[in-house]
Design a binder for these strands. Structure first.
Lengths: 202, 202
DNA sequence: ATCATAAAACTAATATAATTAGTTTTTAGG
DNA sequence: CCTAAAAACTAATTATATTAGTTTTATGAT
């Protein structure tokens, strides 16, 4: 048994690759073990359980996604940053869609690690909103709108839910983002001279 | 063996109930069989496979959701209809969130049945857009925006992704819908006196 | 160099899952 | 009342995750 030199990280990365390549349906401890030229039981030296492995893969996916987002917006501002962010989000979901699913597929109970990591996904979004001058409570509301839209669009695109009509999805995405950008400008404007009615937004 | 009087429909409904109650993790052919006071193998008289069962449960969920949407908007118009539709969508996802997941969890390959049924989910949305006077290509784009937002919001809410900040999610939802309504009014307006530039939207 | 120890692999076994084949029982219609 | 299809059953197969206990390999201290 020539030692394989595995560790937790290598196992998680291999799992992510395998899931991304063949899909989660084809994934199993046995499949991963075969891929790594190791017996199934050996994986438990590095990983607590299949659930644990899934959690780790989810964390990895989140980190990759946040990286992509931050890279996309670096050096860009306002509308450009918004477009770049949204395009990066969509591209990641499209190109790594098995991984993308695992991010939100994690059960909401427990998993404080994943909870915290998914917090990181919001940071680039808030940065863009900040540039638009949208702050405070408004920033929370608009972050939710933007994130919901991006995720929903990606989810439908992945599931093939937009394919009935051949009309360009790129076009749909662009139009939606333009309207959201207009909303951000309006919200920033409103936020500027709104000091007396601080409690009621809009 | 006092015959249980099962049929395809009863099995599917029981599966849906069981999944909704205990979650998909606790679901299995064995669990369903026990619930129905039947041996596991007997289920295969009514259902081809676990996959088949999942597909059927997904179809059932879609039907229930469309019903809820149509009931919500009946007798309402424009902004009222939009609000009612969105609220019904969100409520369904919240109250039946295990079922809601199965709607989009279906693999995009095969499953023409489910593909067709999910088409029905769009109909109520288009009806609302029609009332706003949004038609043609615009209707497709705005339907995608609205549907993406509703799904994304529901998905994040279900996953607990909005809970970090205690700021009201109801408020966020309301604000977003108001902005979308404004967009629909603008799109309808633009659509009315746009006859020469038919090809480029916005 | 050697050797003790912890980690990393292994073998073997258990429990549970989905699924299929083949058999018996029930029930509804002629 | 009897027959044939449907609905239940038993039993077996294959695959899964997981655990216990064992052997091997590196590595770091002597």
């Amino acid at each position: 048994m020539p030692r394989q030199g595995l560790n937790r990280d290598a196992v998680v990365r291999a799992a992510a690759n395998l899931i991304e390549e063949k899909g989660p349906a084809a994934f199993s401890m046995a499949a991963l073990a075969k891929f790594l030229h190791v017996r199934t039981a050996s994986l438990y030296n590095h990983v607590d359980s299949l659930q644990d492995l899934y959690t780790q893969v989810g964390l990895l996916a989140i980190r990759q996604m946040v990286d992509a987002e931050e890279q996309a917006i670096s050096g860009k501002y306002r509308e450009d940053a918004l477009t770049a962010l949204a395009e990066a989000y969509r591209a990641f979901a499209r190109d790594h869609y098995h991984l993308y699913r695992m991010i939100l597929a994690a059960p909401k109970q427990e998993n404080p690690v994943l909870e915290e990591a998914s917090f990181a996904i919001v940071r680039p979004i808030h940065q863009v909103l900040e540039e638009f001058g949208v702050r405070g409570a408004q920033a929370v509301h608009w972050q939710r709108l933007l994130r919901s839209f991006m995720h929903g669009f990606a989810a439908h695109e992945i599931a093939g839910g937009f394919s009935h009509v051949p009309l360009g999805r790129d076009e749909s995405y662009r139009i939606a983002l333009e309207w959201i950008a207009a909303g951000l400008r309006a919200a920033a404007e409103e936020g500027n001279h709104a000091c007396q009615n601080n409690g009621s937004y809009r």
